[in-house]
Design a protein around this nucleic acid. Sequence first.
DNA 1: GATGAATGAGGGTTCATTCAT
DNA 2: TATGAATGAACCCTCATTCAT
Lengths: 211, 211, 211, 211
Amino acid sequence: MPKLGMELIRKRELIRATTAVMHESGLAEPTLAAICARAGLSSSSIVNHYFESKQDLLECTMRDLAAGFLGEVALRVSTARSALDKVRAVIDANFAPSQCTPEAVSAWLWFWSRVPTNEVFAQIERAIDDHVVGELKRALHEIVPEADVDDVAEGIMALMYGFWLRFALDQKKLNIQTACRITQDAVVSKLSLYGQGHAGACPSSPTPGLF
Amino acid sequence: MPKLGMELIRKRELIRATTAVMHESGLAEPTLAAICARAGLSSSSIVNHYFESKQDLLECTMRDLAAGFLGEVALRVSTARSALDKVRAVIDANFAPSQCTPEAVSAWLWFWSRVPTNEVFAQIERAIDDHVVGELKRALHEIVPEADVDDVAEGIMALMYGFWLRFALDQKKLNIQTACRITQDAVVSKLSLYGQGHAGACPSSPTPGLF
Amino acid sequence: MPKLGMELIRKRELIRATTAVMHESGLAEPTLAAICARAGLSSSSIVNHYFESKQDLLECTMRDLAAGFLGEVALRVSTARSALDKVRAVIDANFAPSQCTPEAVSAWLWFWSRVPTNEVFAQIERAIDDHVVGELKRALHEIVPEADVDDVAEGIMALMYGFWLRFALDQKKLNIQTACRITQDAVVSKLSLYGQGHAGACPSSPTPGLF
Amino acid sequence: MPKLGMELIRKRELIRATTAVMHESGLAEPTLAAICARAGLSSSSIVNHYFESKQDLLECTMRDLAAGFLGEVALRVSTARSALDKVRAVIDANFAPSQCTPEAVSAWLWFWSRVPTNEVFAQIERAIDDHVVGELKRALHEIVPEADVDDVAEGIMALMYGFWLRFALDQKKLNIQTACRITQDAVVSKLSLYGQGHAGACPSSPTPGLF
DNA sequence: GATGAATGAGGGTTCATTCAT
DNA sequence: TATGAATGAACCCTCATTCAT
């Protein structure tokens, strides 16, 4: 029964199953057998039917994840008015529900753990990073002194990556909403020092401060 | 070659080789063959001669790394005078040279990526985390309001983990000294809001601020 | 080669090859490599394709052998009229051609030698033993005094096991037909003492007698 | 401390440990490591120090066992007066306490299971068998018609081997004394048919009979 | 005499992949 | 389109054995 569009459906099923397996079997190397079993398909031959190889499936899976993430960023940033709102939009995108399911978080950590090994993954990672950091810096340029842009951007990225890593390690240890709030607060208080944000210029009052 | 007392020497060699392989061959599962080749030993039998299994070698490797890290923390915290100094000591320990070689960073990320899979690794991770977070909170209790202790501690941990993760992903992207400085500044400015730290109450000067 | 329905064929081939290897390579632990080579298959991966493990293959092999044996017993016992005929049927089943090929005898001895080691094999052995001994005792109840049933049954079993063991040790030493005849004669003469069997009460002629 | 006679002591220790390991670890192939651990020696090198190889140790172990058994036979046969007593002596030797410890029984079954594989073991087995069967037949010649000697001897051997095998399979299933008694009774009743033994010529009375 | 170091062969198992159906 | 057959590489581990101490 050569249904049209079967290819797309199967691919999506397999990609979804891949992230599920990454999560369920720890972050161990997912096997094709496990992925196919999870997708309800028998025989791992089907993977080589729709993908060039296991590596291809994994790359597609990560590209899919990355596309979703960059989409969240683009969507939110494009609707932000002020520079500060753009910064906040980037942070919101990082903690967006679609990126924070246990499966997604596991997939991200799995992906990161393979970046040093795998050149293709490294390229994807660099592309994501360049895009997000670029977005961040473009906004920060309008808010903080030129000399501070890099450090502030780097700080924000580290904070988000750190929360993600810690969430992946133990999902009971951390609450995503809390993580997002802490990050947002950190930025607000930080930028308020430069006379931006909702706060006044000099934080003489018991200003929020970082974290 | 059959010198007596070879056990400690070989164990150390193999542990060192393990972290080296983790780093060199990406964060992929290190094979005993690769580890032995790296250590200059022939045949992977030698590993089972000195360790109970591959898993045992990996656990010993991580315990060794963890011990080194906790040692750095203990050493620096014990010589700190004020509560603020203790917080800074924890941060310094995280970015201590012994913990920031490319090999060590790779090993840490490898370790983290296995925590969800492996119960023993999870225990080690929890032990480390409890210890460091505990140290941090004990000091923060004297500095920030009770209600803020958890969030501040969590923020500091995330910042450090995030820098480490990003360093592991691309060592050219980040400079450890910079990461340490940004983290320290973040803490100082944060805590200064509560009237603590070496800085005066109101940061009238181009205030430190977070990140 | 990838014909459908290959599973049953291959399983049978592998089981047959297993007993062959047990026989040919003495009763040493058969290796998958040897079994596959014997079956004309390349690489021992095929075993794990059709069986869960080597242990599974061995268990299936023995269950197959046991089923054949119990089938022989059931077939012959069910067509026996008198109680004595049932006893003789059990003996005939033990020395049936299907159970007395050199391969089968080797497989049985191999199996027995593993019973003390292996719980699954022990269960199979107990099941077989209980079944055969039970069949024997049920028939004997009608022939010999209650007090003698156990000893007679035990004696018959020992005689059969002993012949089998000796046949396994050296197939030139013994002739199966002779063994069967000796066992049958032993039973006939034994039971004739109780006034049963086709023979008259007192064996006035140079009576058969045991052995 | 080069104690004199250390060699004999160590050899005996190792041989004893070998049978112990054969029994304790089922009838699996005993490893040198297990044997040395059982003997309280560290490092399996000691075996190659006192024996030429593992095979040598195993052969010595079986020769030791065989010597003990043949000694039992010789001792009892030499003190037997009548031909019938000699037959009974052989049976008693088979079930002598020294040959019926769980360790000895396991060792014997282990040995038998290796006979088809191993030429040296086969030679030992043949030597034992020839000796015992010879002893038996020599006595039987004086009791039973020439034509029956082989069958009767073979029957007795089978009965004894069968009991041993069944005892090795499950020591709870069988009692050595019972096995010995059944065998002795079988012989007595059998030979009584030929006008020998304690019984009268024609077993018209409810003679014991076999088993 | 006895130990510990080191090696290498060989075993079972997992797994991605190819191919015929 | 989809499945099952089959293969071969790679891995961890066990174990007997040799050698230097």
